[in-house]
Design a protein around this nucleic acid. Structure first.
Lengths: 185, 185
DNA sequence: TAGTTATGATACAATAGTGTCTCATATGGT
DNA sequence: ACCATATGAGACACTATTGTATCATAACTA
């Protein structure tokens, strides 16, 4: 593949991700400028705003998929798999933040939705296994647990960026809260 | 105060809240139309988009403040106060969702920031009390707990709207997860 | 009821954003 | 080194959005 295309799309995806995270109203001109790429070039690769957003969403979901792959390969299951998942996904907290902010647009894309569904099913499976094994509270719905992990990753992105808590520390706090809650019992 | 003003600002705040929650890029014309109010009237009350967003943010923070007031009045403290807070704030989950999506704009407003800080301090205080009493894990930073409650309210709004889980059920799941985490130990 | 004023409709100018096209240039593939 | 092509710069038409102004009318206050 042509290096020039690789270079421009890379710059565009990076700049878009960065800008749209902070300002979802940013214009395509603004994004092109920040990417150091001609406006026409942006339109050549992504004919609409929606397409660009979908492309970033797909890239994000791809990164998530790659992070989960080793857990699947190692045939981990139940709570152990969920724990491993959290550790792997923490570095991608910003991607979750992005997906949440653009979700109403991104979810309209077929591929985005398909990837999202696949991953959701995988996570549900792990939670379900954990519940069957008695490791995870059976009263909690898998849907709710997934939603909470998702939004906790959003919090994690906040903590990493705004309050500069080191990643190792965020990881510990994340797992304590997720596994044991806030009470000492 | 003139009833006409009350009526238009009410309609504008409601419509804006509803629309911006789904589409943060909505134009002011769009919002005015949905509010059933002339575009000129919108500009008479809110001269810029930022002002409008700040107004909704202030209203939201006001609702939150009103919900927390009885807990303060009853002099509750520590974990009990946190639990009571969650119950009171759950019906305002959408407001938290809104605040998160427009925060980069809203936080620039002095009044918004002041109200936010006051409430944050109150919540920190409760958590701190809970930790001193030994009810809440001391290893968890108050900042992290607050961030997580905030984003769990976002999840709750998702569950209430998208997956139509009844509020009572969401409340139970919220408290189980927050207090005890997902593990059975 | 009389006077005030907020409103909707409309027009208007100014600006910003979109989407397409052309063309000389530079960069990459082979 | 040669050819193909992706690029940036610029021009262009078009639409959307903003922000202001005017004015007759309706709704409110006292």
């Amino acid at each position: 593949m042509d290096l020039r295309i690789k270079k421009s799309t890379r710059a565009l995806l990076d700049a878009s991700f960065q800008v749209l995270l902070v300002n979802p109203r940013a214009s395509l001109s603004e994004i092109a400028k920040l990417a150091g790429v001609g406006r026409a070039t942006l339109y050549r690769h992504y004919s609409t705003r929606e397409e660009l957003i979908a492309a970033i969403a797909i890239e994000s979901l791809d990164l998530i998929e790659q992070s989960l792959a080793p857990i699947i390969a190692a045939k981990q299951s139940g709570l152990k798999a969920v724990e491993a998942m959290v550790e792997k996904l923490l570095p991608l907290a910003d991607r979750f933040h992005f997906l949440q902010t653009v979700w109403t647009i991104a979810e309209l894309d077929r591929q985005v939705w398909a990837m999202y569904e696949t991953q959701m099913n995988q996570i549900w499976l792990w939670i379900d296994e954990g519940q069957k094994k008695g490791e995870i509270h059976a009263e909690l719905s898998a849907e709710w647990i997934v939603a909470v992990i998702d939004s906790m990753l959003y919090s994690a992105s906040w903590m990493l960026n705004q309050s500069k808590m080191p990643e190792q520390h965020v990881k510990e706090q994340f797992l304590i809260l997720l596994k044991h809650g806030i009470t000492t019992e």
